[in-house]
Amino acid sequence: MKSSSRSDYELIKKVTLKDLNAFEELVQRYKRMVINVCFRLTGNRENAEDVAQEVFFRVYQKARTFRGKSKLSTWIYRIAVNRSLNHNRKQGGLIQKRLTSADSETLNEVPAPHHNSPDTIFANKEDRQLINKALDSLPEKQRTAFILHHWEGLSYQEMAEILKSSLSAVESRIHRAKNSLKKVLLAELK
C-alpha cells in the first residue's frame, strides 16, 4: 500500500499547496482505512462511502491545520470518527439496516474466508445480526472505543488522541463495553 517513497508529512505539505497528485496519493494510501472505519462506525455500508469521501474532502480543506504533532493517520482517524458520529446523530442514531452476507456481494464488502457453504453463510448471518444487536446496545462512547480498539487495532494512546480522552477513560470504556457485550450475548445464548 505504501509503495510511494514520499512520507505522510511531505504529502500533506504538498496538499496544502493544492497539489492534486499528492492528494490522490494520500487517498490511495488511506482510503481502505477510512472507508472501513466509517463503515464500522455508521453500521451502514450505503453511506460509508459518502462519509469517507467527506472525510477526504475535509482533509483537503483542513490540510493547513495539520501541525504534525500526531501521526497523519491519527489525524485522519479523528476526522473519520467525528464525521461518522455526526452522520449517525443526523440520522437520529445508528442505522438499523445492517450488512448481511447477501449485501456483501453487491457492495464490495469483502467476505471472510470461512464464508463457504450456505449453512455457514446462514449461521454467520445470524451471528452477525446478533453481534450488531449487541454492539448497537452500547452507548456511543463505549461502542466507538470498542470498534477502534478491537476492529481497527488502535493502541490506547492513539485512541486517547483520537477521542481526546485520557488513557484511563479509554481503558474504562473498553472494559465496560466488553462486559456489556458479554451480558447481551449471554442473554441471547440462553
Binding site: 472501513n36 463503515f39 469517507a52 464490495n108 464488502e109 471472510a112 451471528d127 452477525r128 450475548l185
Partner: peptide
C-alpha cells in the same frame, strides 16, 4: 460469537 465480534466487517471502496 466472540471470535466473530473480533473479526471486523470489511468494505472495499468503489
Amino acid at each position: 460469537l466472540w471470535n466473530q465480534l473480533e473479526s471486523p466487517p470489511k468494505l472495499e471502496p468503489s
